[in-house]
Design a protein around this nucleic acid. Structure first.
Lengths: 203, 203
DNA sequence: CGAGTAGGATACAGTTCTGTATTGAATACA
DNA sequence: TGTATTCAATACAGAACTGTATCCTACTCG
């Protein structure tokens, strides 16, 4: 009875992994249930025994991703906050380390964003995740700024939104034209200027 | 014989319009040929008499959009370059005026970007379009900068890439959470700082 | 005004996908 | 050891979609 639960959750996990790959290759709509099962080494029997529909799998996948992301952040935050590096290293480090496979992550998350822009339900879920992520980053920024005896002339949250927007826009460009724009270049070129402009020594 | 050509190109146009709407609503993959025809007020007969497949329509749609974009830019550039406003007003003005329906444009162009990230052929087409757009913006920036007797400490092209990346990233956030982040706020908050940081009076 | 043609509608065949119902095999448990 | 249960495979029915072939209608042009 114990192995059976483990078995079940194992096939769920494999199906989710397979779904990530296939979604990245063909998109949510373009990926058939059969594609996903084949990739995971099962037939549709396994799928429908674990999920009611592809939509439900998408939801489960998003939830699993969110959970994993939260874990990662909680593991990373303490060391990033206390380590010697600069604020930007910490922030960009968190952004990068939570997205190990840049390309696949970008594809999946863009796909889900698009989905959310069409479906209010998905939008709520996504916005919650993004808010959580942003809050973590904001806390990190506030902490480091304070530690280094500075004050920001804009809310830390706005600064974090800027970093995220720039990071996502730049990543899109880098993935489309890796030769023209190496990953991280825009961020490393311009963010220091912004940071310089918004931070003053706190009196 | 003249009306027949006009008729043909008219139904093509209506099919393309319909496709834009349906693609925005359901995505490239999610939109069936029938959906598109229905939206345009035709049946599939009309479709296959004008396009060989949905892929070909996507291509034609992209091409038509590119052409229209080019026209718009050529119409807008002269006045933006000579008008009194600031550099940022001009740049952001061009970005906005070429995308009248923010939401629909964002959906379609994200959809096509995603498509390009998976298909090298589409990537080439998209990169050409983006390069053309970027070049126009770069020229505009260089011209205005020079007119106002300034010099940039980074290549204008890099600055334009920054603006585009930020604009796209910010738009995504604004569309997801219109209440939290009004459109244009990030750009108006941070771009002036960057511009201040990279521009010096030219000796 | 009448034959020819072009554009679009309709009918049809083939494929792919989804979801359910049934079956088979492995494990749990008495 | 035998029975029950659970999970995944297989078989099947139905829906949706695509693409082609044919038909109909409205112009065109002699």
């Amino acid at each position: 009875m114990e192995t059976s639960k483990r078995r079940r959750s194992n096939t769920r996990a494999r199906l989710l992994e397979g779904a990530v790959e296939v979604f990245a290759e063909r998109g949510f709509h373009g990926a058939s249930v059969e594609d996903i099962c084949e990739r995971a080494g099962f037939t549709r029997g396994a799928f429908y025994s674990n999920f009611a529909s592809k939509d439900e799998l998408v939801l489960a996948l998003f939830q699993a991703t969110t959970d994993r992301l939260l874990e990662q952040i909680e593991a990373l935050l303490p060391e990033l906050a206390t380590q010697p590096g600069t604020l930007l290293d910490a922030v960009l480090g968190l952004l990068d380390e939570t997205a190990p496979d840049e390309r696949q992550w970008h594809l999946i998350s863009t796909e889900f964003t698009l989905h959310a822009l069409r479906d209010p339900e998905a939008a709520r879920a996504l916005n919650q995740q993004r808010a959580m992520f942003r809050d973590s980053l904001t806390k990190l920024v506030e902490q480091i700024v304070e530690t280094s005896g500075l004050t920001l002339s804009v809310p830390a949250e706005r600064f974090v939104r800027l970093v995220i927007a720039l990071h996502e826009g730049a990543r899109s460009q880098s993935l489309l034209e890796p030769r023209e724009l190496p990953p991280g270049e825009l961020e490393r070129t311009f963010l220091p200027m912004v940071l310089e402009a918004v931070s003053r020594p706190s009196r």
